[in-house]
């Protein structure tokens, strides 16, 4: 429209389908994130360990390189479930760090300037809003956890031959399942904390604290009461239990209970409860209008 023809015109064009509109939030969030050099640097650093893991797999399956490097012990270079547990633990910790940075950026910008009523005065629900933001973290954290892990699994399968893939195919399910619950828990905690405190820097700090303080309190509880159930407050440890049991033997994924250890179902239950609690906070805080009681 020419500037000299300033006139209000009603819109008569087509509209997009209603259900995928949450992707608008995801798309804009990614555009904003990739404008930040610090984020790009973090993302690259998050992917770098996978290159070392891939190099290790290559050496483990290449006799010529082993001879050149004068490595004689074949067991030292075995790529089995334990190796994938290490990959998972490293990458999920990296995911935690990335999540601490990205999560608050997604929500605090909308909340500090009261933009939420603008979203919610459109045909767009609070659930759409949360799903749109969760999709950002889901895609991002997947890209540095289970996706590279499966690529490394594929690399190992291709290089090992001798039917390695068939004897280890069961690993795919626990890799995806364990990563999914970790990603969901991290994302929901970070969105809930950001919705609660609103300020980005503070939110980043609180996300850190929300992992370390409960773990410390749990250890205190264990020391005072002479029990081991305080470890339920250590979310990273709960995830470790789930991953280790999940990747050691598929038949023991949901049932094994060792002596003096937190049972796997309890670890799953803790992570699911944290997710539900985060959803509860999001439901309370993400409102178009805040109501002051009294």
């Amino acid at each position: 429209m020419a500037v000299y023809k300033r006139k209000y015109n009603p819109y008569t064009g087509p509209l997009t389908a209603t259900w995928p509109r949450f992707f608008v939030l995801t798309r804009y969030a990614f555009m904003d994130l990739f404008k930040s050099r610090f984020f790009v640097l973090l993302l690259i650093l998050a992917i770098v360990p996978n290159l070392f893991f891939a190099g290790y797999i290559f050496i483990a399956n290449n006799k010529t390189v082993q001879l050149l490097m004068q490595i004689r012990s074949a067991e030292f270079l075995s790529v089995e479930t334990q190796y994938f547990i290490i990959i998972m633990m490293v990458q999920t910790n990296v995911a935690f760090l990335l999540n601490c940075w990205v999560g608050p950026v997604l929500i605090s910008g909308d909340l500090t300037n009261g933009a939420l009523p603008l979203f919610l005065s459109r045909p767009f629900s609070r659930a759409d809003y949360v799903i749109g933001k969760l999709a950002v973290l889901g895609i991002l954290l997947s890209a540095i956890t289970w996706v590279p892990c499966l690529l490394l699994f594929g690399l190992q399968s291709g290089l090992a031959r001798n039917g390695w893939i068939w004897s280890h195919l069961w690993m795919i399910v626990p890799i995806i399942l364990c990563s999914a619950i970790w990603i969901l828990m991290l994302s929901l905690i970070s969105l809930a904390v950001s919705a609660w405190v609103k300020l980005r820097i503070v939110a980043t700090g609180v996300i850190f604290i929300s992992f370390f303080i409960p773990a410390g309190l749990g250890e205190m509880f264990n020391a005072i009461m002479g029990t081991y159930w305080g470890a339920l407050l250590n979310f990273s440890y709960m995830f470790r239990i789930v991953v280790e049991r999940g990747l050691r033997d598929p038949s023991r994924l949901l049932g094994l209970m060792g002596r003096h250890e937190i049972p796997v179902p309890a670890a799953w239950a803790v992570m699911i409860c944290v997710c539900l609690f985060s959803l509860f906070i999001l439901n309370a805080r993400l409102r178009a209008r805040e109501v002051v009681r009294g």
Partner: peptide, 20 residues
């Protein structure tokens, strides 16, 4: 509500924007 909000353009009273 959702059908209604498809028809609505809303200008809130308070600050409502994305600063950056």
């Amino acid at each position: 509500g959702k059908t209604l909000r498809e028809l609505v353009g809303y200008m809130p009273e308070n600050d409502s924007f994305i600063a950056k």
